[in-house]
């Protein structure tokens, strides 16, 4: 099944990528060209027209998209007008910074969310559970930018523990990672809790408990292990949220990653950069989903039988 399954998946992914390229190209096309933005504040309409003509931006949509798709198939994602170089290489340059932030954040989120979720599931419906849920909700309800600025004010300006912004030493990643991790940890906590609640109510866990196995043993050995599958899936499915969060977190912390690049690119209508980064992000998300899918198949026998 594996090879056939994989082939089908790859075909699907290619299709999805083409759809994405169409959606994004269409959006950016409608967004208008960057010409007016490249000129000074007091440029006249005539100046704009001259430049637009010289950049070959007067072609119709289908022609432009067709050319784009053709070039893309040859690995050419266009040139960024702002950077004057191959857009994809600009994007790939930024990827490590964003991955660093994302990986540290997700690890932080796991460290907090897994114990908290398990713990509040075992104490379901007590006031402790309520406090944990409340904490998770507050974590989810705080917008990234607000949390980021607050963390800077507290931990950098007042307490001088961490540097304010930028990327460099490991200390630099701490505050942005906490900012990014909070919302995700909150989401994870809630999902892990409900997944744990479910497996704790399974018959075999109850049986194990009634046989007098120590409660902690039951929780960790049986229930937790069993709810591990959805938990792993959940983690992989957070990729999209995570990448979305980097847009704002990177801006607040002047973190030189993909998120900041994208915001700049949208603001300056740098079509090639927007295209390339959405592409890279989409491939990342799809890849993560694929892994989640595969894990699910491998770990959960029930899926196969379907």
């Amino acid at each position: 099944m594996t090879i056939k399954f994989l082939l089908r998946k790859i075909l699907q992914i290619l299709l999805v990528l083409i759809i994405i390229s169409f959606i994004v190209f269409g959006l950016v096309y409608v967004a208008g060209d960057p010409v007016a933005l490249m000129l000074p504040d007091d440029a006249s309409q005539e100046d704009v027209e001259i430049l637009r003509e010289s950049m070959g931006l007067n072609e119709p949509f289908i022609v432009q998209y067709g050319l784009y798709l053709l070039n893309m198939l040859q690995g050419d994602f266009g040139e960024s007008y702002r950077y004057g170089q191959d857009a994809m290489s600009v994007v790939l340059d930024r990827l490590p910074a964003t991955l660093e932030l994302a990986i540290v954040s997700i690890i932080l989120a796991i460290v907090v969310a897994v114990p908290l979720g398990v713990w509040s599931a075992t104490k379901k419906n007590t006031s402790l559970d309520l406090v944990a849920t409340g904490a998770a909700v507050i974590g989810k309800a705080m917008p990234n930018f607000w949390l980021g600025i607050m963390l800077i004010l507290i931990f950098s300006v007042t307490l001088s523990i961490f540097p304010v912004s930028g990327r460099g030493t490991p200390a630099h990643v701490v505050l942005p990672a906490i900012t990014l991790a909070t919302g995700i940890a909150a989401e994870m906590t809630r999902l892990i809790r409900s997944s744990m609640v479910e497996s704790l109510s399974q018959d075999y866990v109850r049986t194990a408990r009634s046989k007098g196995l120590r409660s902690r043993m039951v929780i960790y050995k049986h229930a937790f292990r069993n709810s591990l599958i959805p938990v792993v899936t959940i983690i992989f499915l957070q990729t999209s949220t995570l990448v979305g969060g980097t847009l704002i977190t990177e801006t607040v912390f002047a973190w030189p990653g993909l998120g900041q690049l994208l915001i700049q690119a949208v603001n300056t209508r740098d079509m090639a950069i927007v295209q390339s980064s959405v592409f890279v992000i989409a491939i990342l998300v799809i890849l993560m989903n694929l892994i989640a899918d595969l894990l699910y198949r491998v770990l959960d026998p029930r899926i196969k039988s379907k």
Binding site: Q12, V16, I19, I23, S240, L247, L262, A282, N289
Partner: peptide
């Protein structure tokens, strides 16, 4: 089904905020 689901996959692969960002710029 498969056509619609590919569309769904495409939308899923673009983070919501990014999507909103591009549309609201227009």
């Amino acid at each position: 089904d498969s056509a619609l689901m590919r569309l769904v996959d495409a939308f899923l692969a673009i983070p919501t905020i990014l999507f909103a960002l591009v549309i609201l710029a227009v």
